[in-house]
Design a protein around this nucleic acid. Structure first.
Lengths: 146, 146
DNA sequence: TATTGTTATACTCTATAACTATA
DNA sequence: TATAGTTATAGAGTATAACAATA
């Protein structure tokens, strides 16, 4: 590996896929039992950043099918972290909004949840962290764009 | 974002977690129906790169529990991509080895499976690809090291 | 008694298909 | 008839607990 300064793109794709899959499992394995699962935190974060939205839009953003987003939203509502209100003009639509409880919970969750990741990041040097920061933005753009 | 050349580490952890989760879902969503699932390809790749190993070692490397690795290995064996042989000295242990069929299948799988990822990578510039290549190695080290 | 692997069971996340209500 | 959301159902992947075989 690393034989070429202009790496073969298929090899990069394979490496990325494996790295992402492995870290994803590791993160899930590492998380505490009391916390919200990853996908709910992702939805909560999206509501926090991007504001009130319809379930369909949330589903598209998070790359899941509408039925799954229905369940995720319902779990957030049951936990008091989000509310569903009917759309004022279109009776078919629903608007999902984060609550104040959800907002403060999100901050607290993130602080408690990233202990392992923080520790791992601490073992890296500054340039490696910078690389990961840039990579995170590129990956988010690749996965979330369109 | 990107307001700070020395980014806050907790923020980086959150960004990484979200990026990895989202890309993981996107990749799963994007993959063809005839292919082996990600986790089997990962095991096959590990057997290809690191040679014959016991299921326990595979499980630790891939961050899954032994029962899950038992199933993954059995699926690979049923498909003819790996073989299980008894350990020559320790009757409790099993040695898992990739077959020639598995090896050639792995190459072909990767080529066919990464179409979406390849296309996305093609839209990046050279420096972004270099960033991702370095990040892939760092992430693999973080997830697989220990 | 400790270790390696497996079987049994259950839970989480996800998808597709069918259904309801509104436009 | 088309669209937004939901319900019903099924499947994949994973975990924990209990078990079997060997050391």
């Amino acid at each position: 590996m690393r034989t070429n300064p202009s790496p073969d793109q298929s090899e990069l794709a394979a490496e990325l896929r494996i790295a992402v899959g492995r870290l994803h499992r590791r993160l899930r394995h590492q998380r505490g039992t009391v916390d919200l699962p990853d996908h709910l935190v992702a939805v909560l974060g999206l509501l926090h950043r991007a504001g009130p939205q319809a379930p369909g839009a949330l589903a598209e953003h998070e790359c899941v099918r509408p039925p799954q987003m229905t369940r995720s939203v319902n779990q957030l509502v049951e936990s008091g972290f989000a509310v569903k209100t009917p759309h004022p003009e279109d009776g078919r639509q629903v608007v999902v909004e984060i609550t104040e409880t959800g907002r403060s919970q999100l901050i607290e969750l993130r602080r408690r949840r990233d202990e392992w990741l923080d520790a791992e990041l601490s073992t890296l040097d500054e340039s490696e962290r910078t690389t990961l920061e840039q990579a995170a933005h590129i990956l988010q753009r690749m996965a979330g764009g369109r």
